[in-house]
Write a protein that binds this DNA or RNA. Structure first.
Lengths: 229, 229
DNA sequence: ATTTATTAATGTAGATTTTACACTTACATT
DNA sequence: AATGTAAGTGTAAAATCTACATTAATAAAT
């Protein structure tokens, strides 16, 4: 019985993570200032190498956890990047993953220790290697996902206003949405609970807070749907 | 200056290709009977290993060329599969690609030499490793692509009838389409040239032949669009 | 020459979905 | 009591999608 494909070349496999967060300023990504060569001091995605006995999904989760302290975050694989000299040190193929997290939820101390920082997607610095391309592709995927699955859940605080949800979608899609049309389309999904409670920060009148209805949300995930915003 | 990430593990990277073709019987995939261990004699996707100085796209094209003799075929990367024991011989991560080819165009002799064979997607045999999953995912991706880009080009002979195009879309989407609605939707894309010439195989009346209008097709590719069939 | 059989070609009305748009309400602040 | 601010709400017109049936062209058979 064969126990190796001995003639084939082996390569390093990296995993790079595009971590999206959202706050009142808009859609953000988590970047890290590299403290090792090459490109020490430049900004990069958080990443790491795949271990011998680890699946890619696990590596992505491990890396996210290392830098944010977060667990149980849904991550989605995006694409494998393989340009020969994408990493000048050594031939490395990188598989990118993206995650959506609640920006208030992570471990701020960890982030600080790693010299990590949140940047608006509109004014993030240039990144090392092909990381800018990864980010652009992640944004495209996020937009697509928005049109086929309810999103927000992961990116908003537990209780949120319609305006926050609207602004999240506007930030993701990078276009203005009509408030009334948006609200009626979201309501037609029937995945929100309207609370009695109001948020009084934003206006004198106050605006109702909502939570996601997890059961209905899961139910919706089962069937395909298209949300045209 | 660093010249290796010495502590990281290296792995084998394979590329597996889902090759779609289409003929009067429907949508097909090209499979190969393995002539080496493990799983010798079982059916599998065509595949191979990434070489040290090769990008993934190139490996996919090289593999396609090896088995079909075809060049200049557009291939799209799908997904990286990394289950620990997906290949029982040795830890191997596989990146899948899919291609659409004109089933009449490949090198039949090559195919025969490699014990390769076309199978309808509806009655293909079970495949080795996780290749069945790869095929299912490729079909989903193909369906999605259908909704955002004109397709057919690659899968039909140069001149084709509306019926052939309709049947292609029906095979891909695995559902019946209304002929009149289909024709008017396709026509509204304005990517076809209607020829004077008729195909007389299919009926006494004969049906007009069409070709793709490459310029308009390319133009359409630039802008996003959604085709709801 | 006429009939027959077969598939190609074609348009529309009704239903549904999407879009554009403006006024009133609630309430805290002054 | 007046003012200012964002929240909340409905509808009509436009666009798109769907369902559906008849006529046309021709080769083959008689």
């Amino acid at each position: 019985m064969l126990n190796s494909y001995s003639t084939a070349d082996k390569v390093l496999l990296a995993v790079d993570c595009i971590i999206f967060g959202f706050d009142h300023e808009g859609l953000k990504i988590l970047l890290i200032k590299r403290d090792f060569e090459p490109e020490k001091g430049k900004w990069s995605l958080i990443g790491g190498f795949l271990k011998r006995d680890e699946v890619l999904d696990h590596a992505a989760i491990r890396i996210l956890n290392t830098y944010t302290g977060l667990n149980d975050i849904y991550m989605e694989q995006l694409y494998a990047y393989s340009e020969i000299d994408r990493d000048p040190v050594e031939r490395t193929i990188s598989v990118s993953y993206y995650a959506l997290i609640n920006i208030e939820n992570h471990n701020a101390e960890l982030i600080k220790n790693y010299h990590a920082q949140w940047f608006s997607i509109t004014d993030a610095p240039n990144l090392i290697f092909d990381h800018d391309e990864m980010v652009q592709q992640a944004i495209r995927r996020l937009r697509y996902r928005t049109s086929i699955k309810p999103i927000g859940f992961e990116l908003l605080p537990e209780k949120f206003t319609m305006r926050q949800l609207l602004e999240l979608y506007e930030a993701i899609l990078s276009k203005e949405l009509d408030k009334r049309n948006f609200i009626s389309k979201i309501n037609s999904l029937e995945i929100l609970n309207k609370l009695e409670e109001k948020d009084m920060q934003s206006s004198r009148k106050g605006s109702y807070l909502y939570t996601f209805n997890k059961e209905k949300y899961e139910e919706k995930l089962l069937n395909d749907f298209v949300l045209n915003l």
